[in-house]
Computed example of a mutant assay.
Amino acid sequence: MAGKRFGLTDRDYAVLLLGDADLEAQLRAIRGQLHRQAQADATLQDDIADIAKRASTASGEYGMHLENSWVDEMHASVFQDAAHSTAAIGMLAPLLESLFVGIFAGIRDIAPPAQPVTPTGPRAAHAADPDFWDPHVVFSAAGRKRTQVPHGICELVETTGLTAHMPADYAQMLGAVFAYRNKMLHHGFEWPPAERAKFEARIAREGWPAEWFDRSLTNGETWIITISDALIRHVLAQIDAMLEGIGAFIQSRYP
């Protein structure tokens, strides 16, 4: 962490770029909701284990009833996992999107830096375009624009020279988060089989860590895909690391 000015840390400088948005309160709310979801999961797993224990010693019709209850609860747990996965991605993806929208708008609006930012990369040719600072937008070499959030973020990170201050796998993380968000947004819990296969292929193609996603199977085939606790923890840790890096970048360039 760079030296403090006026008692402000690198993270503070990054958060100040967001203006009135209270990022810290948002993160506390998200972590609180994720904690409550984890408690609900633990409660359900305890209930399932209790039914299984009782079924192992019961017999007759009551034993059959307990076995059927166990199957029902196991089935319900898959959909609870999917609901919690959708809630998690529904909080994390918009947070990341709004974070970068605010950060780049903040950089755009502050005074010229002591060390001027010289735009680089394919986006640099469009610095005069009113959408230049919008991370939703990706520019082609011919100047055509399309909406593609993670790529727009990465273009602006490269263009502004922020790359060295970002976690090494931030682009990979953003790609996984927004790709999964789009699948859940458009297909719900149970994606069409072709969409499941395409996403599995993309995980391999992009080199996303296997532990970032969990799967429930039916007949040996992928049925429901959820984000894992490992990915959720990684996203939250990356947000912290990105804020530190952005703040260090700001402190190094802006008096």
Results as ranks from 00 to 15, higher is better:
A171N: 07
A52I: 05
A105P: 01
Y62W: 13
F79D: 00
L99W: 01
R123W: 04
Y180F: 14
D134P: 13
I48L: 10
E158R: 13
R144N: 15
P116V: 02
M64F: 11
P150Y: 02
A111E: 14
G63C: 08
W191P: 00
G152N: 01
R144T: 15
F132A: 03
P116E: 04
V177R: 00
V117A: 05
E73S: 07
T86S: 15
A49S: 12
P94L: 08
S77I: 00
D109W: 03
G60N: 06
A141K: 12
V117Y: 02
A82K: 06
W133L: 05
S69E: 13
R123H: 09
L66M: 06
M91V: 04
I153D: 01
S77C: 03
L162V: 08
K53W: 11
P119C: 07
P150R: 00
E190C: 08
Q172L: 15
Y180G: 00
L185N: 10
A125G: 06
W70H: 14
V117F: 04
L174E: 02
G143V: 10
T163I: 08
A114L: 11
K145E: 04
A93K: 00
M173D: 07
A55P: 02
A125H: 07
M74R: 10
S85A: 12
L95Q: 06
A179N: 07
T57K: 12
D129S: 09
A87S: 12
P116K: 00
P94K: 03
A168Q: 15
F79I: 01
G161D: 03
A127T: 13
I110F: 06
A171C: 11
M74W: 01
A49T: 09
P119T: 06
Q172H: 08
M184D: 08
H151D: 13
A168P: 05
M166E: 02
H126T: 11
R181T: 09
S98M: 12
A142K: 12
Y180L: 10
D109T: 08
F178V: 07
P113W: 02
G90P: 00
P94E: 08
L185G: 09
Y170K: 02
T120M: 13
E61P: 02
H165V: 11
L66I: 06
D129L: 04
M64E: 14
G60A: 07
G60S: 06
D109R: 07
P130C: 07
K145A: 02
A76Q: 12
A111I: 10
F100C: 02
G175Y: 05
F139K: 04
V138R: 01
G106H: 02
A93N: 03
P192S: 11
A124W: 06
P116H: 02
H126P: 11
A58Q: 07
P167V: 09
S56H: 10
I110W: 05
R144E: 15
V177M: 04
S69P: 01
I89D: 01
A105M: 10
N182H: 14
M173A: 13
A141L: 12
V101H: 14
D109F: 04
K183R: 15
F132I: 04
P135L: 05
G175D: 15
H75W: 08
